[in-house]
């Protein structure tokens, strides 16, 4: 398999193409079905996504017996509803914090020189290479009552603030972990915006703030939406960070699922929670879709 792919992949290995004549018939076969190249990914998705998802859905209706009892339980338990709403609200806050933090950063990346840009990109990517658990534990040290932040606040004369085991602490930690997912799509859209458009707006009489608001911002919105969706959806399913930084009042749905499945071995209820989260995400995205539909094509850049 790997050999046949090698001979047909664009820009594929040079030496192999040297035995051109012999490879000819085989190359023809694969060239006729280029979609076969997607086969590994399709197989992986079926095995690792579709099958488990179907299992979860079917178990949520079938354990311990067939019926809707798991869903009835979910919606008739106040705690579950509360946690579901909290999951959405924390995710929304995380998304908002990420947009506010990422927008100027991504803009800065588009205007600095190539060397500075590399530094900025590295600042985004290096945390990616550090395990999420390590980063979250670092946040524990920073946020705890006797931690770095509170020590500094006290040293300069402010009273301490409660951060660890509060929703605020969870939002801070999650926003830091998810920030790259906002910065990168934003940067890729912003890089495509022609800054001469802002200059044009100024020549037509728009003061700088107005030129930004009326020209640059609308053109950067696709990046904001793309990043927001990625961050929001990832935040909905976050487990480690809220579990370590949060307290009982900032439990998210993934923690409840974990306790149902691993502590209580109640696969049916855990499955039902997952399905509820999935379906409500779909509904939310469907509601947001009209907002994101672009009414224009992006200006082509030469």
């Amino acid at each position: 398999m790997s050999q046949t792919i090698d001979t047909t992949a664009p820009g594929g290995s040079g030496p192999r193409q040297a035995n051109g004549v012999a490879a000819q018939p085989r190359r023809w076969r694969l060239a006729a079905y280029p979609s076969l190249l997607a086969l590994p990914a399709v197989l992986l998705l079926i095995a690792a996504m579709a099958y488990p998802l179907l299992t979860i859905v079917s178990r949520s209706f079938s354990e311990p017996e067939w019926g809707l009892q798991n869903y009835v339980w979910f919606f008739s338990t106040d705690v579950n509803i509360q946690v579901l709403l909290r999951t959405f609200s924390i995710s929304a806050w995380v998304t908002l914090v990420c947009v506010i933090a990422a927008y100027p950063y991504a803009y800065l990346m588009t205007v600095v020189g190539p060397r500075m840009r590399l530094v900025l990109i590295l600042c985004v990517l290096v945390p990616f290479w550090v395990s999420g658990v390590v980063r979250t534990l670092a946040w524990v040290i920073l946020l705890q009552d006797s931690g770095v932040i509170n020590s500094v606040l006290k040293a300069i004369g402010f009273g301490g603030v409660k951060l660890i085991r509060t929703p605020t602490g969870v939002v801070i930690g999650m926003a830091q972990v998810l920030l790259p997912f906002m910065i990168l799509p934003l940067y890729s859209v912003m890089r495509g915006i022609d800054l001469r458009l802002v200059q044009a707006a100024r020549s037509l009489g728009a003061r700088p703030a107005l030129a930004f608001w009326q020209v640059y911002l609308p053109l950067s919105l696709p990046g904001v939406f793309a990043g927001a969706i990625i961050v929001f959806i990832l935040a909905l399913g976050f487990y480690i960070t809220p579990a370590l930084l949060g307290g009982p009042r900032s439990t998210m749905l993934s923690t409840l699922v974990q306790s149902q499945v691993l502590s209580l071995l109640n696969w049916g209820r855990g499955g039902a929670m997952g399905v509820v989260l999935l379906v409500s995400t779909f509904i939310l995205l469907a509601l947001a879709a009209p907002l994101m539909r672009q009414r224009h094509k992006q200006a082509s850049r030469s």
């Binding site: 001469r196 044009a200 224009h296 030469s302």
Partner: peptide
């Protein structure tokens, strides 16, 4: 005097039309 107060028309080589309008 900043550009937006000069009241001068400018035509750019790459048109610089606002793609979202």
């Amino acid at each position: 005097v900043p550009a937006h107060k000069r009241n001068i028309g400018v035509v750019f080589q790459h048109y610089a039309l606002f793609p979202h309008m």
